[in-house]
Design a protein around this nucleic acid. Structure first.
Lengths: 324, 324
DNA sequence: TTGTAGGCGTTATCAA
DNA sequence: TTGATAACGCCTACAA
């Protein structure tokens, strides 16, 4: 069923039907009614495909996520999807895993789909393969990086201040008299590197970093168990993401440590995990929800060719609960 | 940049370029090389839009999710997205909330986008508005319902046996000598109604049902606190979803009840929440992960016009952890 | 206020 | 082995 079929039945031309569909002015009210009636009769729905072809705009955007396991990122994707839908954009959400090749090939897919813009969620996208792919396949398409940096044109970068977040967490723990403060990291991403920097700047000489821990509850559990068995005088642990910290809490409890009397636990992201934890987890709020909202707003501005701030950095805040 | 531009530069016709792009046979190797060289030179990417228009296939599918807050559903979406991508399909993921109007209008959007098929995740889609919208706008498009039933053609329904899940949970608790077994429910969905039926069939005369609890940790906490204050002799509580149960655990603990000595807690879905809980949560595994995998497989079969089972029901299993 | 004609970027058919 | 041509379904000048 095409606008031609509709046109024939009404006894008008296709362009008249098109005008009615798109609420164009300059149409006699009676013919508008006639067309609408037939449109409704057949439950006609326009082909966004064909429309996109002539309009040179698909009204679709792409959202790429590096890591599903970070619940927060999927939440971000949905915040963006919802906001874009309000402006009539559909979202193609793809998740690439942590493989840089997959990220790059997803960029190419977005190019083929002729999206009008896109968002990359997660600092894992800040790598040269992705940068090259964008320069190759989508050199002039507007896009937004959530918590990532590439320094490309037509884009906005909305960042969490992860370094400050970690710095503040350490500073707070020290102010509470904690001595040996350890840091447990999962993946090597730009964001995580900044967290480590913040930790190092604040912690002083007694530094303990456990790296490359599996990004899961079990990973946090195992790493913490091992750490506390080797160095039972650790008085506080900061984790790169909340889910690790939950595993860490349990490990400490299983070693008969009291939280927070014997040991303080701090997570990162202030995700839903943090308040469902028991004991409830203190966590650095990197404000990813607000980040996502800002991403959507920035993308919409870029899409409208309005001016946007190229870089926005959101200061973190430390949310204190029962684990410190 | 179109295939015409490429054709001109190589000195061949557009159809030759098209053949090269699509790996069609019957092309001289040397001209294939020539074309490929120019294709690469300009990082050419075909327009899926234009291609979809002539091929009458967009190679896109839609995935509709009723409720983000159920972490399990988003996980399902990603399982499906990943599987479909292997076969070259992009996924438009939309989340509709629990509004039936939004669900119906999302169906219309899928129609306009000319998706090749779609998946509805969650029993909330089993309502007449959605059914009408499908019959109106997409009467002959293949689709799959994850844990839902509409009884429409061209579709497959992959279901969890929620009634049996609840029934088994109660039966287990009774076998452990638990007397007063309560059930706490959140939304009114077909799936949740089945759980309640299973509960009622197994529980006997002493039935306690708390309904319409807010679908969140806090909702579970508040409802449980109230229940246990009023009826402190409740010996077990089953919750419609895990997240409620986590709140429930905490409420019981805050009332100085020992889990599982004084009270048993059982959740539903065996989601990641269940094992990050403290104490770790026993939960009915409705096997939503497998459900999602089966959905993707079914959709692919339907897309290929192969035969599929119209209805698959997965038996649940009760996963025992520390809370029972 | 309405219709005609051309084009958006592909692919498929048919002819050469 | 290649090219010309006609779709695919829609929108927009321009003309009437």
């Amino acid at each position: 069923m095409t606008i031609y079929d509709i046109a024939k039945e009404v006894g008008v031309s296709a362009s008249t039907v098109s005008r009615v569909i798109n609420n164009r002015p300059g149409i006699k009210e009676s013919t508008r009614q006639d067309v609408m009636k037939v449109l409704k009769k057949y439950n006609f729905s326009v082909s966004a495909q064909a429309r996109g072809l002539v309009n040179k705009s698909s009204m679709m955007i792409g959202i790429l996520i590096s890591d599903i396991r970070n619940l927060h990122y999927t939440e971000g994707a949905y915040i963006i999807e919802q906001r874009m839908m309000k402006d009539g954009y559909c979202s193609i959400i793809m998740n690439t895993g942590n493989s840089e090749e997959m990220m790059a090939s997803s960029i190419k897919t977005l190019a083929e789909r002729r999206v009008d813009g896109f968002v990359l969620i997660g600092s894992a996208f800040s790598n040269s393969l992705v940068k090259d792919a964008i320069e190759k396949y989508l050199p002039s398409l507007p896009f937004v990086l959530e918590n990532g940096e590439l320094g490309l044109p037509n884009s906005a970068e909305i960042l969490a201040d992860d370094e400050k977040g970690a710095f503040d967490a350490v500073t707070f723990l020290k102010s509470k008299g904690r001595r040996k403060i350890a840091y447990i990291n999962n993946n090597d991403t730009p964001s995580n590197r900044k967290k480590i920097e913040g930790y190092l700047k604040a912690v002083g000489n007694e530094r303990i970093i456990i790296d490359n821990v599996d990004d899961s509850y079990g990973g946090g559990y195992d790493a913490t168990l091992k750490l506390l068995k080797e160095k039972s005088d650790v008085e506080a642990i900061i984790y790169a993401v909340d889910i690790l910290a939950l595993g860490g809490e349990r490990a400490a409890l299983d070693l008969n440590k009291k939280i927070p009397e014997d040991i303080s636990i701090v997570g990162f992201d202030n995700s839903p995990y943090s308040y469902i934890a028991n004991p409830k987890l203190s966590s650095v709020d990197s404000r990813l929800g607000e980040l996502s909202t800002l991403c959507a707003e920035s993308l919409i501005k870029l899409l409208k060719k309005e001016k946007t701030e190229e870089k926005i950095i959101l200061p973190p805040s430390l949310v204190l609960r029962e684990s410190t």
